[in-house]
Simulated assay, not measured.
Amino acid sequence: MKDTIQHRDGIRLTLSNDTEIVFDGDAPGDVTVLSHAHGDHLLNNSARAVTSELTAALSNVRQSEQTLTTTTHPTVELFRAGHIAGSRAARVTDPQTGRTYLYTGDCTTRSRLYIEGFTPVKADVLIMETTYGKPAYRFPPIAESLEQIHTWLEETMDTVVILFGYALGRAQKIQHILSHSPRSRVFITDAIDQLNGIISSHRDLSFDARLYDADVELREGDALVLPMSTGRISWIESLVERTGAITAGFSGWAIDDSFIYQRGVDKGFVLSDHCDFDELVGLVESVDPEMVYTTHGFTETFAQYLTKHHGYDVRALKQNQSTLTEF
Rank of each mutant, 00 (worst) to 15 (best):
D3G: 15
N60M: 09
H296S: 15
L42A: 04
E290I: 02
M291C: 14
L218G: 03
T104M: 11
I11L: 14
T100Q: 12
H180L: 12
Q66R: 11
F23I: 10
V216D: 05
D313I: 11
Y137C: 02
R315S: 09
G10Q: 10
G244C: 03
T243M: 01
S251G: 05
T67W: 13
A136D: 07
E154S: 07
F250G: 07
T70H: 14
F187E: 02
L153G: 00
L195E: 12
G105L: 13
R232L: 02
S251P: 04
D190H: 10
A303H: 10
E65H: 12
V265G: 00
M291H: 13
G29T: 07
T14H: 04
L15G: 07
R112H: 07
H73D: 12
I199K: 04
A123K: 00
S59Y: 09
A27I: 10
K267A: 05
T100P: 04
E290M: 09
D266K: 00
D30K: 14
H309N: 10
G39M: 06
I149V: 06
S200D: 00
P120M: 06
H7A: 15
F118C: 10
D106N: 14
M1H: 13
D256Q: 12
I246A: 06
A245E: 01
G98V: 06
W253L: 02
G268V: 01
S322C: 15
D208W: 03
T19D: 11
K2F: 14
S145V: 10
V265F: 00
A123W: 02
D204L: 04
L146C: 04
T108N: 12
D9G: 01
T72L: 09
T51P: 05
K173Y: 12
F79C: 06
T93A: 07
T159M: 01
P227T: 10
R232M: 06
S251A: 06
L205I: 12
L58D: 05
Y261W: 11
S52N: 03
N196A: 01
K308Q: 15
H310C: 13
S179Y: 03
H73P: 08
P120S: 07
K2A: 14
R110P: 02
E285Q: 08
R88S: 14
L195A: 11
Y114D: 13
V281G: 00
A56P: 01
L205F: 10
Q96A: 12
A136K: 10
S111H: 03
L205N: 11
L78C: 02
T55Y: 08
V92M: 06
T51L: 04
K308V: 15
V50K: 09
E241T: 02
H150A: 12
T323E: 15
T301W: 03
